[in-house]
Amino acid sequence: MSPSFLLQLGISAAFIAVMVAVTAVARIPRATPPLDDTALRRLLAEDYPETVPEAVWISRDGQAGLAASGGAALVAYRLGDGYVTRDLPWADLGRARRTDRGVELLFTGPGGGVAHLIWPSAVPWPPERL
Protein backbone atom coordinates (compact mmCIF):
# COMPACT_ATOMS: atom_id res chain seq x y z
CA MET A 1 0.00 0.00 0.00
CA SER A 2 1.31 3.41 -0.97
CA PRO A 3 2.13 6.10 1.61
CA SER A 4 -0.64 8.30 0.18
CA PHE A 5 -3.18 5.52 0.68
CA LEU A 6 -2.01 5.00 4.25
CA LEU A 7 -2.27 8.75 4.85
CA GLN A 8 -5.79 8.69 3.45
CA LEU A 9 -6.62 5.80 5.80
CA GLY A 10 -5.20 7.66 8.77
CA ILE A 11 -7.20 10.80 8.01
CA SER A 12 -10.35 8.69 7.50
CA ALA A 13 -9.81 6.98 10.85
CA ALA A 14 -9.46 10.38 12.54
CA PHE A 15 -12.68 11.57 10.89
CA ILE A 16 -14.46 8.44 12.07
CA ALA A 17 -13.37 9.10 15.65
CA VAL A 18 -14.71 12.66 15.40
CA MET A 19 -18.00 11.54 13.82
CA VAL A 20 -18.56 8.89 16.48
CA ALA A 21 -17.86 11.50 19.16
CA VAL A 22 -20.36 13.87 17.53
CA THR A 23 -22.96 11.08 17.54
CA ALA A 24 -22.31 10.34 21.19
CA VAL A 25 -22.59 14.00 22.16
CA ALA A 26 -25.75 14.55 20.10
CA ARG A 27 -27.57 11.77 21.98
CA ILE A 28 -30.27 11.12 19.41
CA PRO A 29 -30.95 7.38 19.67
CA ARG A 30 -34.44 5.97 19.38
CA ALA A 31 -36.49 6.03 22.53
CA THR A 32 -36.33 2.51 23.90
CA PRO A 33 -38.65 2.12 26.88
CA PRO A 34 -38.28 -1.03 28.99
CA LEU A 35 -40.26 -4.04 27.84
CA ASP A 36 -43.60 -4.90 29.34
CA ASP A 37 -45.96 -7.72 28.39
CA THR A 38 -47.61 -5.73 25.62
CA ALA A 39 -44.36 -4.46 24.14
CA LEU A 40 -42.81 -7.93 24.19
CA ARG A 41 -45.82 -9.49 22.50
CA ARG A 42 -45.82 -6.76 19.85
CA LEU A 43 -42.12 -7.25 19.22
CA LEU A 44 -42.49 -11.00 18.88
CA ALA A 45 -45.54 -10.61 16.65
CA GLU A 46 -43.35 -8.69 14.19
CA ASP A 47 -40.62 -11.32 14.03
CA TYR A 48 -42.75 -14.43 14.64
CA PRO A 49 -46.13 -13.46 13.20
CA GLU A 50 -47.38 -17.02 13.05
CA THR A 51 -46.83 -17.78 16.71
CA VAL A 52 -49.00 -16.82 19.64
CA PRO A 53 -47.10 -16.74 22.92
CA GLU A 54 -48.94 -18.67 25.62
CA ALA A 55 -47.08 -16.93 28.39
CA VAL A 56 -44.46 -14.22 28.71
CA TRP A 57 -41.93 -13.28 31.37
CA ILE A 58 -40.08 -9.98 31.56
CA SER A 59 -36.60 -9.52 32.94
CA ARG A 60 -36.76 -7.36 36.09
CA ASP A 61 -34.87 -4.54 34.36
CA GLY A 62 -37.18 -4.60 31.34
CA GLN A 63 -34.24 -5.15 29.01
CA ALA A 64 -35.18 -8.65 27.94
CA GLY A 65 -38.15 -10.95 27.81
CA LEU A 66 -39.04 -14.57 27.30
CA ALA A 67 -42.13 -16.15 25.79
CA ALA A 68 -43.38 -19.70 25.52
CA SER A 69 -44.94 -20.80 22.28
CA GLY A 70 -45.50 -24.49 21.79
CA GLY A 71 -42.15 -26.22 22.15
CA ALA A 72 -40.26 -23.02 21.49
CA ALA A 73 -38.88 -20.29 23.67
CA LEU A 74 -38.89 -16.86 22.08
CA VAL A 75 -36.43 -14.36 23.47
CA ALA A 76 -36.09 -10.63 22.97
CA TYR A 77 -33.29 -8.57 24.39
CA ARG A 78 -32.07 -5.04 24.06
CA LEU A 79 -29.19 -4.19 21.76
CA GLY A 80 -28.26 -0.52 21.53
CA ASP A 81 -31.51 1.35 21.08
CA GLY A 82 -33.39 -1.59 19.61
CA TYR A 83 -34.28 -5.16 20.37
CA VAL A 84 -33.13 -8.45 18.90
CA THR A 85 -35.24 -11.59 18.92
CA ARG A 86 -34.14 -15.20 18.99
CA ASP A 87 -35.86 -18.57 19.26
CA LEU A 88 -34.70 -21.86 20.69
CA PRO A 89 -36.26 -25.11 21.88
CA TRP A 90 -37.85 -24.65 25.29
CA ALA A 91 -35.93 -27.65 26.55
CA ASP A 92 -32.65 -25.81 25.85
CA LEU A 93 -33.44 -23.10 28.39
CA GLY A 94 -32.08 -25.40 31.06
CA ARG A 95 -28.61 -24.90 29.59
CA ALA A 96 -28.66 -21.18 30.32
CA ARG A 97 -25.79 -20.00 32.48
CA ARG A 98 -26.79 -18.82 35.94
CA THR A 99 -25.29 -15.51 36.98
CA ASP A 100 -25.40 -13.49 40.19
CA ARG A 101 -28.45 -11.59 39.00
CA GLY A 102 -30.22 -14.10 36.83
CA VAL A 103 -29.53 -16.10 33.70
CA GLU A 104 -27.53 -15.59 30.54
CA LEU A 105 -28.64 -17.08 27.24
CA LEU A 106 -25.81 -17.33 24.74
CA PHE A 107 -26.70 -17.70 21.07
CA THR A 108 -23.81 -19.34 19.31
CA GLY A 109 -25.08 -19.25 15.71
CA PRO A 110 -23.70 -16.95 13.00
CA GLY A 111 -26.00 -14.11 14.13
CA GLY A 112 -24.71 -14.45 17.68
CA GLY A 113 -25.90 -12.51 20.67
CA VAL A 114 -26.45 -12.93 24.36
CA ALA A 115 -29.56 -12.20 26.39
CA HIS A 116 -29.29 -11.33 30.08
CA LEU A 117 -32.44 -11.86 32.09
CA ILE A 118 -32.55 -10.49 35.61
CA TRP A 119 -34.24 -13.37 37.34
CA PRO A 120 -34.88 -13.72 41.06
CA SER A 121 -33.06 -16.74 42.40
CA ALA A 122 -36.23 -17.78 44.24
CA VAL A 123 -38.08 -18.16 40.96
CA PRO A 124 -37.41 -21.43 39.13
CA TRP A 125 -35.56 -21.44 35.84
CA PRO A 126 -36.84 -22.27 33.28
CA PRO A 127 -40.12 -20.76 34.40
CA GLU A 128 -43.02 -23.07 34.93
CA ARG A 129 -45.64 -23.06 32.21
CA LEU A 130 -49.19 -23.33 33.43
Binding site: I16, M19, V20, T23, I28, R30, G80, D81, G82
Partner: peptide, 8 residues
Protein backbone atom coordinates in the same frame (compact mmCIF):
# COMPACT_ATOMS: atom_id res chain seq x y z
CA UNK B 1 -31.86 8.71 14.88
CA UNK B 2 -28.22 7.77 15.48
CA UNK B 3 -26.91 5.16 17.91
CA UNK B 4 -23.24 5.53 18.75
CA UNK B 5 -22.05 1.93 18.35
CA UNK B 6 -24.16 1.45 15.26
CA UNK B 7 -22.63 4.58 13.72
CA UNK B 8 -19.12 3.46 14.62
Amino acid sequence: RYETRDTA
